[in-house]
Structures are given as C-alpha cells and as structure tokens.
Computed example of a mutant assay.
Amino acid sequence: MMETMPRKPVARDAVLDAFEAVLIDEGERAATLDAVARRAGVSKGGLLYHFPNKEAMIGALLERLDLLAETEIDAMKSAPEGAAAYFIKSSLWADTPMDRVFVAATRLAEVAHEETRRRFAGIQQQWLDVLAEEIGTDLAKAVRYMGDGLYFNAMFESGHGDAAARRQADVDALLAAVEILRKG
C-alpha cells in the first residue's frame, strides 16, 4: 500500500500568493475560488484542500499581514536612525511582501470586511505607539500621515520617469521637517 504524503506548504503559499495577487490586480469581487485556483495553477479541488472557502483564505492572508507587520514594527523599534525616520523611509511602495499583503488587505477593507478593518486599526495603533515613544503623540500622528501620503503616491508613481528621484527628495524633505518639528 502506497503511503500518502502530505502536501507541501509551498502549494498552500502559492494559493495564498494567487489570492493576494487577484485582490491587488482585480479587487475583492474578482477574487473567487475559481479565479484564485486559475491564478495559482491548481484545480479548484487543490485549492479547497488548503482553503475550504474564501473566508479561510482571508484568514490566512490576515495572519500573513499580522506576521509581516510584527516584523516591520520590530524593525521600527530597533532602527538605528529611530522609529520616525525608519517609518518615513519605509513608506515607499517597493513591491515587498509587506507592501503586497497590505494592498491586498486594503482591497478587503474597501468592501467593509470588519476583521480586516480591525486588524488595520490594530497595526496602525502599534505604529503610533512606537512612534509616540520616540517623538510624542502629536508628532507621531503627523509622521504616520506623512508616511501614508508617501506610500499612496509611490504606489501610483512607480515606473514614471524620474519618480524614484522625486520620491527620495520627498523622503529627505519629510525627514528634515520631522527634525524641525522635534526641535520646535
């Protein structure tokens, strides 16, 4: 009798990556089980082996978001240049795993997925807490909004001419503004 080998976690990750990609590229409504299976290159049965329904995929995506956010928050806390400078410098779209899961989860939040909104609120509060430890609550909020603006604009400017040079100039200007506000 042939022993059945458990499926590799790589297949599960490939399905989750496909779900993330469909969310980013096409939005929540397009992220059907069939569309995700197609994107992952697996049968619908193969997808269902790992995720019995869309909510299970959402749960796994939110776990990925939490893990990557925890890593980012730890990096903020230990950044030699300080949490505020790290936050601003890392607020540019770079197509990192964190960028991708963040945007994918944003697509879920757009359709009022409550658990996603709750997770985002928790992550944003953690960012604020780390920033506030370093620069105080009011300046922490300003830095978060600076980072949000950089991130939003960088997502839409990528690949357009000298966008990278402009973004770096923006980062430098915002870092200088934070220093002025700190001393103020």
Score class of each variant (00 low, 15 high):
140 A>H: 01
77 K>E: 13
181 L>N: 04
65 L>N: 11
17 D>F: 04
180 I>K: 14
73 I>L: 05
146 M>E: 14
25 D>H: 15
151 Y>N: 03
181 L>F: 08
147 G>R: 02
46 G>E: 13
130 V>L: 02
130 V>M: 02
119 R>C: 11
105 A>L: 02
144 R>D: 04
58 I>W: 00
17 D>T: 12
144 R>P: 00
56 A>E: 11
162 D>K: 09
27 G>H: 07
129 D>P: 08
85 A>M: 03
5 M>Y: 12
10 V>K: 15
109 A>M: 03
108 L>A: 05
7 R>Q: 07
36 V>W: 11
159 G>V: 11
125 Q>W: 06
97 P>Y: 12
158 S>C: 14
159 G>C: 01
67 L>Y: 09
78 S>G: 11
102 F>L: 11
85 A>G: 06
106 T>A: 11
125 Q>T: 12
63 E>P: 10
153 N>A: 15
107 R>N: 03
111 V>T: 11
123 I>K: 05
90 S>E: 10
131 L>Y: 03
24 I>R: 14
96 T>E: 03
44 K>M: 07
81 E>P: 09
132 A>K: 03
123 I>F: 08
167 R>A: 01
168 Q>F: 01
97 P>F: 02
62 L>A: 11
80 P>W: 09
175 L>F: 08
22 V>C: 08
117 R>G: 14
107 R>T: 00
114 E>K: 15
137 T>A: 13
82 G>T: 01
173 A>D: 10
58 I>V: 09
46 G>P: 14
100 R>A: 03
164 A>L: 04
28 E>A: 15
4 T>Y: 12
81 E>F: 08
143 V>Y: 02
158 S>D: 10
87 F>G: 00
91 S>H: 05
126 Q>M: 00
174 L>I: 10
71 T>G: 06
140 A>S: 02
20 E>T: 02
145 Y>D: 03
167 R>P: 02
87 F>V: 01
66 D>S: 13
76 M>A: 14
15 V>F: 00
180 I>G: 12
122 G>C: 00
25 D>K: 13
114 E>G: 09
136 G>P: 13
113 H>Q: 06
70 E>L: 08
99 D>Q: 02
61 L>F: 07
167 R>G: 00
72 E>D: 12
96 T>Y: 05
69 A>G: 01
3 E>L: 12
35 A>T: 15
5 M>G: 13
156 F>P: 07
162 D>F: 01
22 V>P: 03
34 D>Y: 14
10 V>G: 07
87 F>K: 01
58 I>T: 03
143 V>H: 00
50 H>R: 07
62 L>T: 11
169 A>R: 03
39 R>I: 06
62 L>N: 08
139 L>Q: 07
170 D>A: 14
4 T>I: 10
82 G>M: 08
159 G>T: 04
16 L>F: 05
166 R>I: 09
110 E>R: 14
174 L>A: 04
151 Y>G: 04
26 E>V: 10
32 T>Q: 01
76 M>Q: 06
89 K>W: 04
20 E>F: 02
84 A>N: 13
126 Q>K: 13
